[in-house]
Design a protein around this nucleic acid. Structure first.
Lengths: 227, 227
DNA sequence: TAATGTGAAAGTGTTCACAGCA
DNA sequence: TGCTGTGAACACTTTCACATTA
């Protein structure tokens, strides 16, 4: 009845709301009762006006002239992002990256539960990561069906990512985060978010190399590296 | 003299150029001599027209009516991205995520060399990852200075990320990729790219939950999971 | 003729400035 | 008075359609 019609939140905003939620959780644990958009924006690494616009998609959240009530805003964001309901996920590929993700405690407090950690390597099967035992990748379909999983994380080598993806989709998964450096082909109705860690470094390097060429030749305070 | 004035390549384009370069390397190794924008775009997971526009920032690269010569285009992209010159990087925080990045062989072929892998945990010091031995974090300043490092990757716990960042900047680093879930404060002239793995999952989950609410109620072909 | 290269249009996201309200 | 909420301007990206050329 008091259900607010949260209309069409832009994807870029959703990503930032997740960051605000994390910052607010930290503030709440520190006992803070309220924050201004300026302080919250600074802690989240964004522009204050942009933050206020982001929050405005949820309707009025704050008190003019004062700021935002930390616990109330936190709950509002949690609800908007759907953190309240537990989500069952599977993760395929328990190498270093998969282990890092599975072991990240932050997921548990945000509604995510890894009900299946899968790997093709028998040597890794049975390892316990973040409280869950690694199972053979053969169990994929069984785990997905048993828990009604709709979200999967792929951290396998690139060579097998597509076949793993096909099996996930066939089993009923509709949303996939892919860390393998290949573009996954999926049928309509299935979402893939591609995350490419090496591209981040490459973009940074590009911007870095441009620094000297940009404006004035270069500053004296910067030492030249090569002999 | 034949230096082409590559003017103002958008950041979004730079990120995709890195992906194209990876795909082209695969095609070159498979012995392919040429590709069309359609095939390249499909392998990279983008729109063909967008790919052509991306490449157009480097000037004409292809042959009308035919396509692109794989080796020539590959070299062109490599030069534009600055892959040719070797870049010295340091990585701080050799947990699972740091180990995953340090062990990724793809960096070596793209001009990146990790000249320093640093960790605060004495138990990890001395481990060899990707051919490089882990050193104590106390050596940070020494490594940065010795190799003229300007690029760093931070994969430490969130609690120490800012202090590590401060030390990196003081030592001369100008570009940082930060995987710790905190916004880093840096002086002007220093670039930070924030990568937040948990946010990716959160955005995906948000879109996933919206699927049922979107357009028509839902399709018959999709099974409902919960009992 | 079959593909590239590219203006122009549409869409999306960000920033600004200020009205509105405790 | 101070900070939120937001329309309007701006900047950036993507998409489309088609002229262009080997």
């Amino acid at each position: 009845m008091t259900e607010v019609r949260t209309r069409a939140i832009p994807e870029a905003t959703v990503a930032r709301l997740a960051v605000y939620l994390r910052v607010l959780t930290g503030l709440a644990e520190a006992g803070r009762g309220s924050v201004s958009s300026g302080e919250l924006a600074s802690a989240a690494g964004v522009n204050p006006a942009g933050l206020r616009k982001d929050l405005s998609y949820l309707g009025p959240c704050g008190v003019r002239g004062v700021g935002y009530a930390v616990p109330a805003l936190r709950e509002r964001l949690a609800r908007a992002l759907g953190v309240e309901q537990a989500r069952s996920c599977v993760l395929v590929g328990m190498g270093n990256l998969g282990s890092a993700l599975a072991g990240y405690a932050g997921f548990g407090t945000r509604g995510f539960t890894f009900v299946g950690l899968l790997d093709a390597d028998p040597a890794r099967v049975g390892d316990v990561v973040g409280g869950t035992a690694v199972r053979p990748v053969e169990d994929l379909e069984e785990v997905v069906a048993a828990h009604g999983v709709t979200i999967a994380v792929v951290t396998t080598p690139a060579t097998v990512a597509q076949s793993v993806c096909d099996r996930l989709v066939a089993a009923g998964v509709r949303s996939i985060v892919n860390f393998a450096p290949v573009a996954l082909a999926v049928p309509a109705g299935v979402d893939v978010r591609q995350v490419d860690l090496s591209v981040e470094l490459q973009v940074l390097a590009f911007l870095d190399q441009q620094k000297g060429v940009d404006v004035v030749p270069h500053r004296m305070s910067e030492q030249v590296a090569l002999p």
